[in-house]
Design a protein around this nucleic acid. Structure first.
Lengths: 240, 240
DNA sequence: ATACATAACTTGTAATTACAAGTTATAAAA
DNA sequence: TTTTATAACTTGTAATTACAAGTTATGTAT
């Protein structure tokens, strides 16, 4: 019962994983041609439909571009599938000097009355853990984020430190929870006194607001974030 | 030479387009099951690999979710490409409430001096086709969009009608150009007089601004959009 | 040397066959 | 009535064959 699991993985998927790995690792540099379908057939001992299935997925995910009569050209690395599909908000503002500062310790409360997403029965009765943080870029606060995490089976969560740590990382490393997708609502608003205070701007300045729902690998388990962003000096950037 | 063009379109693509159309039009409501692969085979007189190719694309674009042993379930929103899906803050507004109104006929011009993305030599010397449109939801303008399309090998483009048509759809169905990825910058700004006029709001109201680059399956060919969105009553919504 | 035809590639389309594996409704057995 | 096994679905995997169509290099004739 040792290595039986790997042999259950279909061939097209194994080939996909391998090629994908090679692409992101630079074995096939961007702009170069992948081996032809027939070459891949013989080197991996599969038939062309199988190879094409693997290549088809790579193409649909943006790793390669296929050209009839020419071949499959390696494309630049896709950052993610979706608008602002950030690994946390960190990658959104680029590689500036970014620090995360907790405003308070995580605390539990009931869900807000005007919560922008529908909640399940279980989520509602469990309440939520709230995490308030600001993100500081080059010394000035740019993001103010409130995260709402359903208080379901997260032992010692409020004791964890989030200083300069991504919520995503904490969830994955401590609880094996991975974000697999999500949904977000984006709007422009005017800063009120509270938000203006957090972001060090005037009341009435334009603010980018995001309401995000992050779906995880735990079926039915999601967490949520409200993000307020001062885009006077920095804009949010996303690849898809 | 009349109807030869349509017969050149491969069967899996015709089936994909048809099913996609039926899904977005609600012929197959969200949550419902699509006809089984074998049913689709017989009704459209093709074989299962062809059907599976069409369904595979629908699945990868988020229109359906396939379940082994069960069937293909229609999903709510297409993930990934585009945030052209608007949703109201009060109640869900379907796509049927959304109308696209061209402000002027498409016209060619040189690229703007302060264009927010880098352009290639070829793009620069070719100039661009500009498309100005507003999107109207329930009678009130919500989006103002300027699209910049490199004037390269797009026969009769300025004669095409964009009334209530997606630019994506026109590019795909007329020129076989598909958006495979992109990059966007998002910020909140205050409306000036011109934008306020287009969106029927006051000067100084908060506006969501997007600068987007859309990469296509034509190597090196991208098109661009600047989007101004009034999010007082509607927000932009995206899945990933 | 240049132009053009051709051969040797490449991916695209599509039908066919076979079986594996997951889901669901039905019918028989407890 | 409840449980269980089975049959009849569903999609998933995979090999095989055949030809169409686009690209590129290699020629030969001009």
């Amino acid at each position: 019962m040792a290595g039986t699991e790997t042999s259950k993985i279909p061939q097209h998927r194994k080939l996909y994983e391998l090629l994908r790995k090679h692409i992101v690792e630079g074995v096939y540099p961007k702009g170069s041609l992948l081996p032809s379908e027939n070459e891949l057939c013989s080197t991996h001992d599969v038939t062309r439909p199988t190879v094409r299935q693997a290549l088809s997925r790579l193409a649909s995910e943006g790793y390669i571009i296929k050209h009839q009569g020419k071949g499959s050209i390696v494309r630049s690395l896709p950052k993610g599938i979706g608008i602002l599909s950030l690994q946390g908000t960190t990658s959104g503002v680029g590689k500036h000097n970014l620090k995360t500062k907790p405003i308070s310790k995580p605390y539990t409360r009931k869900w807000p009355e005007d919560f922008p997403f529908d909640l399940s029965e279980l989520e509602l009765e469990s309440g939520c853990i709230v995490l308030e943080r600001t993100r500081i870029v080059d010394g000035s606060p740019v993001l103010y984020e409130i995260s709402y995490i359903p208080n379901i089976n997260l032992p010692r969560f409020t004791n964890k430190s989030f200083e300069n740590k991504s919520l995503f990382d904490v969830m994955r490393s401590n609880y094996d929870i991975e974000v697999i997708g999500g949904n977000q609502k984006i709007m422009a608003i005017l800063a009120n006194k509270e938000i203006g205070n957090y972001l060090n701007i005037e009341e009435g300045d334009p603010i980018l607001k995001l309401e995000r729902k992050l779906e995880t690998n735990r079926s039915g388990y999601s967490f949520y974030s409200s993000i307020y962003c001062n885009t006077n000096n920095f804009y949010l950037e996303g690849s898809f």
